[in-house]
Structure formats: C-alpha cells, structure tokens
Simulated assay, not measured.
Amino acid sequence: MSYDVAAIRSRFPALRAGIAHFDGPGGSQVPDAVAGAVAGALTSPLANRGTITGGERAADAIVHGARAAMADLLGADPRGVVFGRSMTALTFDLARTLAAGWGPGDEIVVTRLDHDANIRPWVIAAEAAGATVRWLDLDPDTAELDDIGPLLSERTRLVAVTGASNLVGTRPDVPAIAAAVHAAGALLMVDGVHLTAHEPVDVRAMGADFYACSPYKFLGPHCGVLAADPALLETLHPAKLLPATDAVPERFELGTLPYELLAGTTAAVEFLAGLDTAATGDRRVRLVTSMTAVSAHERPLRERIEAHLATLPGVTVRSRASTRTPTLLVTVEGREPGEVYRYLAERRIAAPASSFYALECSRRLGLGDGGALRIGLSCYTDDGDVDRLLEALSALVGN
C-alpha cells in the first residue's frame, strides 16, 4: 500500500484555509480535479444530449462516462445507474413507484438506525398505499441493529437499511440481512451515502436490490445516485413526461441531467481510484485497492481519538458497534452539544453537533432531537488534524 496523505491533502484547495475538517459525514471537501472537471464542462460546448452537434455529443459522453464511473465505484452495472438531484429525491421517487403495487396486508420494514431519507419516503409511501410499517430496533448500548428475522414474512415487500449509520457509524451485516430479506421474497434498499466514502462497495456481493449514495460525500459534487439491476428497473414504471424516453435508466431521470455535476462525479471517482498510488489494474480494481487503503488510513486515526477520549472526564462516545466507519458521536457532561461545536469552531476545527437527520437513532440513544457532537474522519484527515482536535477537547474539559 502506498498512501501519502500529505500529497492527497495538497490536492484540496479548501484545506489551505487551515481548518481541521471532521465534518466529512455531512459533505467532504473537494479536490482540484473535481472543481476543474465541473468548470471544464461548463466552459466547453454543451447542449442537451444528442449525436449531431459537438455540444450534444459532449453531454452524451459525460452521462455515459459518469454511469461507467459510478458502476466501477459500486461494483454495479452502468445500465442500472440512475442520477438525480439527491439521494433523498431519488428515494422518494423510487418509493412512490414501488408503492403503486402495494396495498393493505403488505408490509415494509425500516430501521431506527437509518437517516430519515431511508425511512420517511418508505413510511409515507406505505401509509398512502395502506401497507403496514414495521420497525427494526437497535440496542442503545451497542448501537447495533436487532435481528431482522422476526419482522419478515411472506407479506414483506421491501426492507430499507443503511450500509453505515451517518450518526454513529454502525455497519450492519448487510449481506446477512439481504439473504433473509430475499428468502422472504422481498426487496432490499440500502442507503450507501455514508458507507461509500469509507469502504470498497460491491452492491452485488452485499445483495442490495437498490443502492443509493451521494457523490458529495466522497469528494464529488452535489447530486444523487441510485444503482440497481437494469432488469429490475425494467419492471418499474415511474411517472414521467409523455415525450420523455421510456428507456432504462433514463425513465427514472426527470428533466435534463446536470452535466457539469456528472463530469465532477466522474472526476471524483477517478481521484478515489488514485488514492493508493501503488494500485494497478483497471479502474474497478484500483478503486477497491484505494478504498481499502482509505479504510486502513482512517482506522488508526479513529482508534487514537477513541483512546484519548476514554481518558477525558465526562466525555462519552456513543459509537460502539463492533463494525463501524470512522465516525464518533460524542457527548460532554455539563455541556450542550452546540456549545462544544462552537468552541471547536472558534479554534478552526469543524466538528458539528446535531442529529444529522438520523432522528430515530438519536432519540433511541436518549439524545432527543438535538443529537450530539459528531467527529468524522475522511481520506484527507491527518495526525495534525487529530492533534488539534484532542488538544482542544482536553482543554475544554480541563484535562
């Protein structure tokens, strides 16, 4: 493995401002190559997709390039990669489409671990169809999900679960959940927004029927991606404009795609593939190698933070799952989360406090709607950032 974090950091213009960023779970910083790709698309001839003019061909090439890039990142079929405004918007659209075939007696399962974007669209769609919503709980002491088995039956139509919690980092055993869900004859929707930034992803191996993520969480622009087997997408018929194509995946993409953002998404995937400079092979192989290196880089930094926080009086880490991303949810006795957030911000350390839309999880952990301080590591986090964070927190509690 060859992972040079100093060289990686040099490619992020925002890091020159001197802020220690632990806010990656809410949106990563962006490398120069991504900004350049967005600008390049916007300043080159561009038009609606087609085959006649140079602008039309450029737009078409951008879309196909972005589908291929995301397929490589996720281990998916590019013919099943759908782009949209956000993961939330794509999930709402998918939920409405699937729910058209639901009715009374049908059941869907959502979890108390998930971001609300993988809960509320399904709850709203199920209620509108007269279907029943069943909840998979979590243990507040370990932040681990309960066994899904007792909630499944021949009436189950869909299960929605996160690949990794954006609040506490818990990584459920998705392949095991997928096996149980498919044995019941149901579909599995995986929210991969938080997971994709930290680990190699293979949607086929994990058993996800639908996998959604957001490029802005892994160094790219603000848009959303849904990956599925194109054969499955062929069976679904979303509402669309009459002149719009009925081809898959385009039938799921409402309106004109943001070509400049898709160009930036491809650039982000290319950048990720080169994080381990020793990686060789095709882009998919280099992505797996590089994302494995990201995980190996982030893990000891997370362990160092955890070890230090364990020595600080009144500091409690709520992220305790046996398998998790480098994301720590922290409370400080006698201090409101927002107070700690502002204290760190004054020292040019970005570590926000909230429930971060994981409202059910925050409530289940006893933190109410306000949540707690979240410390999130990214591929560009280094020991200097960690030094600053730990020194500031030590000073805060007087240790």
Score class of each variant (00 low, 15 high):
87 M>Y: 12
144 E>K: 04
155 R>W: 05
125 A>P: 02
104 P>H: 14
84 G>L: 06
188 L>K: 03
31 P>S: 01
46 L>W: 05
66 A>G: 03
245 T>G: 15
265 T>I: 11
250 E>I: 08
159 V>I: 04
234 E>R: 10
13 P>N: 09
75 G>R: 04
17 A>F: 11
131 A>M: 09
365 L>P: 08
298 E>G: 08
86 S>D: 13
106 D>N: 07
275 L>H: 04
144 E>S: 07
57 R>C: 12
245 T>Y: 12
295 S>T: 08
220 G>N: 02
269 V>Q: 00
56 E>C: 12
91 T>C: 05
274 G>W: 06
304 R>V: 11
253 E>T: 10
289 T>P: 00
197 A>T: 03
74 L>K: 05
326 P>I: 13
44 S>T: 14
19 I>D: 01
217 K>R: 08
34 V>C: 05
170 T>F: 15
263 A>W: 01
54 G>A: 14
219 L>P: 12
142 T>C: 14
380 Y>A: 10
324 R>N: 07
181 V>I: 12
351 A>Q: 04
75 G>K: 08
113 L>H: 02
102 W>K: 07
36 G>T: 07
258 P>K: 07
105 G>K: 11
319 S>C: 13
296 A>W: 08
95 A>R: 02
84 G>I: 15
288 V>P: 05
160 A>F: 03
241 L>D: 09
184 A>W: 00
194 H>N: 06
294 V>D: 02
148 I>Y: 00
330 V>N: 04
292 T>L: 10
398 G>L: 15
163 G>V: 03
81 V>Q: 01
34 V>H: 00
5 V>W: 08
137 D>A: 06
212 A>N: 08
70 M>C: 11
352 P>H: 10
207 G>L: 07
218 F>P: 06
91 T>Y: 01
4 D>M: 10
258 P>V: 08
98 L>S: 03
51 T>I: 10
325 T>E: 13
72 D>H: 03
31 P>T: 00
183 A>P: 00
139 D>M: 02
365 L>M: 12
95 A>F: 01
210 F>M: 03
358 A>N: 13
98 L>A: 02
256 T>F: 08
245 T>A: 14
384 G>D: 09
303 E>M: 11
235 T>N: 07
241 L>W: 15
161 V>K: 04
5 V>L: 13
273 A>R: 01
15 L>S: 08
61 A>D: 11
206 M>G: 01
211 Y>E: 03
14 A>S: 09
375 I>S: 02
173 D>P: 00
206 M>F: 05
296 A>T: 09
369 D>T: 12
246 D>C: 13
78 P>G: 06
215 P>G: 00
55 G>H: 03
327 T>S: 11
180 A>V: 00
274 G>M: 09
110 V>Q: 02
53 T>C: 11
62 I>V: 12
238 P>I: 10
171 R>G: 07
33 A>D: 06
216 Y>S: 05
174 V>H: 02
247 A>N: 12
356 F>W: 13
34 V>G: 06
134 R>A: 02
251 R>G: 15
176 A>M: 05
141 D>G: 14
70 M>L: 04
26 G>C: 11
147 D>N: 00
217 K>E: 09
221 P>H: 00
27 G>N: 10
356 F>R: 14
139 D>V: 00
239 A>Q: 08
96 R>Y: 15
140 P>A: 13
141 D>A: 12
104 P>V: 15
233 L>C: 08
41 A>E: 04
252 F>Y: 04
200 P>R: 03
